[in-house]
Amino acid sequence: MPLIMMSGFPASGKTTRANQIRDFFNTKISELSATDPRAVKIKVHVVSDDSLGLSREVYREARPEKDARATFYAAVKRLLSSDDVVIADGMNYIKGFRYQLHCEAKALLTPSCVVYVGVPAEKCKAWNVPEPASEDSSPGGREPYAQDVLENLIFRYEEPDGMKRWDSPLFVVPWMDEHIPGEEIWNAMVNNEEVKPHQATVLKPAAEANYLQILDKATQDVVSAVLEHQKMNGHGGSVAIPEASNKIELPTTYVGLPQLQRIRRQFISFNRQHTAEKTRLKSMFVEYLNKELE
Rank of each mutant, 00 (worst) to 15 (best):
L108C: 14
P251K: 09
D49H: 12
I154G: 06
E208A: 06
V40T: 13
P2V: 04
K291T: 12
Y145D: 02
G182Q: 05
A240S: 13
L32D: 11
L80C: 00
Q273Y: 09
R63L: 12
H45G: 09
D36Y: 11
I268A: 04
A74R: 10
D67I: 15
A62V: 14
F270M: 11
A133K: 04
G236W: 03
L32Y: 12
Q213H: 05
A146W: 05
M91Q: 13
R262E: 15
S81C: 06
G140P: 00
T219H: 04
E159H: 11
W166N: 05
C124A: 04
S112V: 06
L281F: 02
L153Y: 01
S138K: 15
G256W: 11
I248T: 01
S81F: 07
Y116Q: 08
F171C: 11
A240R: 02
D167V: 06
G8W: 01
G90P: 05
M189L: 09
L289M: 03
V117D: 04
S12D: 07
G140T: 00
N19C: 10
T252A: 15
V173P: 10
A18R: 03
E294I: 12
P251T: 03
M163P: 12
I241M: 00
I87M: 02
C124L: 02
F267G: 06
D49S: 09
R265W: 15
G140V: 00
K217C: 02
Y99K: 09
F171A: 09
V202K: 12
T253H: 14
V40M: 13
Q213I: 11
L80T: 01
E159G: 07
H198V: 09
L109N: 14
K28F: 08
A146F: 03
A105K: 03
V46P: 01
E194K: 14
R78P: 12
W127I: 00
S7P: 03
E184V: 14
V286S: 01
C113A: 07
P174W: 07
V172Q: 07
L170H: 11
R272M: 09
Y93G: 09
N92Y: 02
A188E: 10
A39S: 10
T253G: 11
M284L: 13
A62N: 13
I42D: 08
A18G: 08
D161G: 06
E208C: 08
P160T: 10
M91L: 12
D148G: 05
A133S: 02
R22I: 07
I29S: 02
F171D: 07
P130F: 03
L52N: 03
R165F: 14
E143L: 07
N187R: 13
A107K: 05
F155V: 15
A209Y: 11
E143A: 06
A88I: 06
S137K: 04
E57M: 02
A68H: 05
E151K: 09
N246Q: 15
P139L: 00
S245H: 14
P64L: 07
A74H: 13
A225N: 04
P111D: 09
R17Y: 01
I180T: 01
F285P: 03
Y99F: 08
D136N: 13
P169M: 10
F25G: 03
M91E: 03
V119F: 00
V173L: 15
S245Y: 12
G256Y: 14
V222T: 01
T15Q: 04
S134F: 09
P251M: 08
E131R: 06
N128H: 01
M1D: 11
F285H: 06
